[in-house]
Amino acid sequence: MIKRLPNFLTILRIGLVPIFVALFYWGGDMRTFGATGVFAVAAITDWADGYLARRYQGVSPFGTFLDPVADKIMVATALVLIASSGEMPALLAGILISIIVGREITVSALREWMAEVGERKKVAVSWLGKAKAATQMISILLLVYERPVRGLSARTLGTALLIVAAAMTLWSMVGYLRAAWPSLQGNSGAHLDRER
């Protein structure tokens, strides 16, 4: 039963996305406390499912595939909602979200390619990637919460942390590309369909 729990938490995280969207658009306390709470639960389950899978040998191909997908769906949805709210300068929001989402697409494609050529370990999640993810989660929580935190503007704090997260995003992406560069320069992937 415990071995199945990580996959259940991952599926739950995906199921929380439409609830998060509804609460965000509802506004008021439903956004401040409801949407923020839902996102916090998603962030906690992101950590919990990985921990439980490793602790109780519950790692499965299905979970390995779905876990990063669930993370990206929730984060991308939250970023799009924040940008569409107009609470952040449009240009800044566009740049930050393009960097963060673009990096996720790039690194996901890179990991898929490296897995196909048998060198997935070269682009395993690094400490910087984990730090980026944590900073990104906190910044989104603050931006969704919206109200002052101990007299400080949550929006200002969240925006500042999102800028830091975007910088870490670029830094980590460069690190992954450097690690994979020798493989990308070789002919090991020449047989792959380049039109995919």
Rank of each mutant, 00 (worst) to 15 (best):
E87R: 02
K72A: 12
T135V: 10
R150G: 03
V17Y: 00
G94L: 05
G37E: 08
A83M: 09
M88F: 00
A90S: 12
M168I: 09
L161T: 06
V21K: 06
S84A: 15
A160C: 00
T169F: 01
T10A: 04
D29W: 13
A83N: 06
T106R: 03
A83G: 14
V59D: 00
A70C: 13
Y145T: 06
R4E: 14
W47G: 14
G37Y: 10
R4I: 00
T10P: 02
A109H: 04
L81F: 06
I97W: 01
L152G: 04
G34K: 06
A167S: 13
P61F: 12
P68E: 13
T106K: 07
A78E: 03
M137E: 05
K121I: 01
A70Y: 03
K3R: 15
M114L: 10
S60T: 14
S172A: 14
E146T: 00
Y145G: 11
A124S: 15
W26M: 14
V107A: 11
I95Q: 10
T64L: 11
L141V: 03
I100A: 10
S85G: 11
L192G: 00
T135C: 12
I99V: 11
I14K: 02
S183N: 11
A131V: 05
K132Q: 11
M88S: 01
G175R: 10
T32Q: 14
R103K: 14
G86N: 09
F8I: 13
R147K: 14
R55W: 01
P61L: 13
T64K: 12
V101R: 07
L128E: 07
L91K: 01
A78Q: 02
M114Q: 05
Y51C: 08
T106P: 01
A133N: 10
D67A: 09
L152M: 12
L52Y: 07
R150D: 07
I73W: 12
G28N: 03
S139L: 03
G58A: 04
V164K: 12
E116F: 08
V21P: 05
A70F: 05
M1C: 05
R4V: 00
D71C: 13
E87T: 01
V101F: 11
R4H: 07
Q185A: 15
V69G: 12
G158T: 08
L184W: 11
I82C: 03
E119I: 01
K72I: 01
R178N: 12
G28M: 05
F20S: 05
G63D: 06
A40F: 14
Q185W: 04
E146W: 03
P68W: 09
V101D: 02
P61W: 12
I163F: 10
R55H: 02
P61C: 10
L184I: 06
Y145D: 09
V80E: 14
W47I: 09
L23I: 08
R150P: 00
S183G: 06
S108D: 07
G118L: 06
F62C: 07
A167K: 08
M137S: 11
R155Y: 01
G94V: 04
I82P: 04
G189I: 01
P61S: 07
A166F: 12
Q136M: 13
